[in-house]
Design a protein around this nucleic acid. Sequence first.
DNA 1: ATCGTCTTCGCAAACGATTGCATAAAATCA
DNA 2: TGATTTTATGCAATCGTTTGCGAAGACGAT
Lengths: 343, 343
Amino acid sequence: MKGSQVTIKDIAKALDISPSTVSRALKDHPDISPATKKAVKELAEELNYQPNSIALSLRQRKSNTIGVIIPEIVHFFFSTVISGIEDVAYDAGYSVIVSQSNESYDREVMDTQALFNNRVDGMLISMSRETTNYDHFLSIYKKGMPMVFFDRACDALKTSQVLVDDFDGAYQATEHLIKQGYQRIAHLGGPVSLLISRKRLEGYKAALKAYNVPLDESLILSDHSSDDEDNAKEITSMLLDSPNPPDALFAINDIAALGAMMAVKEKGLKIPKDFGLVGFSNWRFTSMTDPAMTTIDQPGFAMGQEAARLLIKEIEAKEDEVIEPETITLKTNIIVRASSVRS
Amino acid sequence: MKGSQVTIKDIAKALDISPSTVSRALKDHPDISPATKKAVKELAEELNYQPNSIALSLRQRKSNTIGVIIPEIVHFFFSTVISGIEDVAYDAGYSVIVSQSNESYDREVMDTQALFNNRVDGMLISMSRETTNYDHFLSIYKKGMPMVFFDRACDALKTSQVLVDDFDGAYQATEHLIKQGYQRIAHLGGPVSLLISRKRLEGYKAALKAYNVPLDESLILSDHSSDDEDNAKEITSMLLDSPNPPDALFAINDIAALGAMMAVKEKGLKIPKDFGLVGFSNWRFTSMTDPAMTTIDQPGFAMGQEAARLLIKEIEAKEDEVIEPETITLKTNIIVRASSVRS
DNA sequence: ATCGTCTTCGCAAACGATTGCATAAAATCA
DNA sequence: TGATTTTATGCAATCGTTTGCGAAGACGAT
């Protein structure tokens, strides 16, 4: 850039004093005379002096930047989380660098390393669904990098984490279907490598048990596609063609639920009369499907805020201070819509 | 962090040579003897030396970071753009700092300044809808900061920009409605402060003219809400209650179209039989509404890529090289769905 | 006149890496 | 052997800011 910014040296030269004096004057150091302070501050104001944050970072060994690794930005839930992170980080004076793994393990490893080399002060991470090996996190964790996991956490590391109550959300979803009188409730789950998949499965099972609904393992299936509804549609279609089909389904997420909805419609079944459906995440589109989809609200913005708060607390802790890893679990709420109300 | 990273000095000390030699050895400077190079490289590898990017930034007066200012991350279109930006930036060795204005002018001014102080090498900007004054952009532009606008551009600055063909998209939408036999086609526009609003309005008018459909100014309305459909719903409702109501509507974006859809349904009109509807942007949910919504596809990912490419080209131009501002206009395509097909 | 005490400021090193210039040692040539 | 070139390396400044330490000058006290 042509008009390079004014520095402390420029001010020092103009006032014929030393850079150190300018530096101290700007931060009201008691050693500096009021007259000098006034002169310095006035000139700084006039020249629109802005401290060079890169020089500061170097000096203080702190970049005031936090790195975020998420599977995909274009997912409504994750973009909401970023928004929450940004909200807190901005107020605390941190910049946010976002990188996405695109659900790829390799890319996640590279992202982690890149953020580390960029000297971020801490990391907020939600793992890709491919990830089953945690060495890339572990190695920088051991070097003292503050990190907080959110949503898709890593139980191999004892870091702070922010989760939603997946168990309870799944429980509420299943309970709701049971109470609506559905008899055979299927579950379309996610990859078991993700803790959230397992938790939701557990909540589903717990609700069945609590209401004495027999558990049929053949009704528990797994969807491995991440971003489109086709796989879910296919699986549901097969399920409906089986000899003893379900009359309701609780899906791991809203996209999968949408795929299921399409399959159910194709079979000529009426929702919610013949078939009940519940998704997970409360994506924006769920209120716009036909019929509108019942789902579990997942507070993404709050999750981002909490995660950023925990991380910044850890970053700014004194050297000797020991920070105990914290786990924050956010409440989920069922949003009841037409897709599951039989009455 | 406890395990502070190894530096060039550490390597120098271990090998009992000077830091400059290490620096040169690492980058294969011809002055360094093969033996020294080998020793340095081996030790660097062993200690997992990673250059400190902050020190590099300071030295080279370049942060290898680009700043992005967008209205809201949680909008599908914008998150898609970010994804495209990240795609290109990552490969070129740049980090991406994202900040959102939340459609607020004040916040946009602060964001601009914050990114500038963070010494980003360039900026990618899509203006807030509140913005009518461009001084905050102009002042840093004059200091030589490379910047590229996308989608919501700023015609007051002669920077590069990446746009979609809003005029043509609107033309296609309106033409389609005309060809489907709708007679009185309304337009629900956006704030005239945004160039895209004006372009889309022009496209609408041009199509009417081309097909000799009389232009009725009372059918042109403006939606000022950004993120929800309520305002659009209200306006459409009033329009339908007027003495001479429209039988079709082209909305500035999909959210507004959704609001309109709700209003039309409430009046008991059938879509597309009694009323035709076209949105803009091809948001994800448009394929899931009932009936599915006709819309104009806006290539967000490609837009992000192009914008990032233009910006990086500008950043990396030699000092004396003069970069002519470029305007890239991406094609829009109509996605015809049930909401507008009368046959 | 000497000493001590403030007040106010500058020097220099540091953060980590780069680079123009100088220089010592080694190799080449006459 | 002496002069010259080549090779390999180090010194020191630089990017912009901070900070421990030292010091000059003013002033009062003895």
